[in-house]
Amino acid sequence: MKPNAEKPFETKTEAMQKAKSHAAGTDAGSYVPPPQLLQSLITRGTDAQGNPIVSMPADAFTKLLEAALNPGFDEVSYLTSNSDIRAGVDSGSIPSGLRHFAAYGFFEGRAPLNCDFDSDWYIATYPDVERAIKSGQVRDAAHHFEVFGYAEGRVPSSSFQATVGEWHRLASAGSAAIDGGSTATKEKKPPGKSRS
């Protein structure tokens, strides 16, 4: 074998090192642009009930979501748990696990696997999970959360209850806004501000 030839198979350790190098390369993903640039991408308006709404191009939203998710995102775990994504990252067709998660995985209900998880609390809060474990449908509570619970909107521990409740409230308000129609208009720049 030539010294620079690629090996046909990589060991699990090599795969994890590769994932860590991908994760290290995503630090720039946490960059949030200055307000002037971000405002140029935002359209503000109101829904039929007069509630404020904001819209932006999907690519810009994905980059903003990527920046928000980057600090706590566990690239290694995400690629380990999602072999299809790891294959895409390895082949170069997907830039990183974080990019995939922000653009698709988040909306597919794939768990980011970096949250404070409390197995005892989860089982006590969701009795069906204990039944699923006993019947062999899932290995344990964490496995249930990873495969089903996150996408179902279940809470990983009591420390997240208030935050998840607030997201559900916002989602309900957002659904009402979408159902009621909107009158979005492009926000005008404040006088005296110039683009550079």
Rank of each mutant, 00 (worst) to 15 (best):
S157N: 10
S196T: 03
S77L: 12
D140S: 11
T46Q: 04
K2T: 09
H143G: 06
S158V: 02
I85F: 02
D47R: 01
G105E: 01
I53G: 01
T125A: 07
G149K: 12
N114V: 14
L65Q: 12
D140M: 04
I123G: 06
K186F: 14
P8H: 06
L65E: 10
I133L: 07
F73K: 15
P95D: 04
E66N: 08
R99E: 00
T183M: 02
T163H: 01
S81R: 14
Y150T: 07
L37N: 02
S158G: 13
M16H: 06
P190S: 14
S158K: 12
S91G: 13
T43E: 08
L170K: 00
P127K: 01
H22S: 12
A141W: 05
Q49Y: 01
A141N: 05
K18T: 05
F107V: 09
R44D: 02
V32W: 04
E130H: 01
V155N: 05
G29R: 11
Y150S: 05
H100A: 07
H168T: 10
A171Q: 05
G180A: 13
T13N: 08
G192D: 13
G50W: 06
A68E: 10
I178L: 15
T26C: 03
K2S: 12
I42A: 09
A15L: 13
Q36M: 10
V89I: 13
S83Y: 01
A5R: 15
D59I: 02
Q49V: 03
E14S: 03
W167Y: 09
G174A: 15
E130T: 02
P71H: 08
G25Q: 14
A173T: 11
A151C: 04
S175I: 02
G109M: 13
R110W: 04
Y104I: 14
G105H: 09
L64R: 14
G180L: 00
N51L: 00
T11V: 11
R44N: 06
L113H: 11
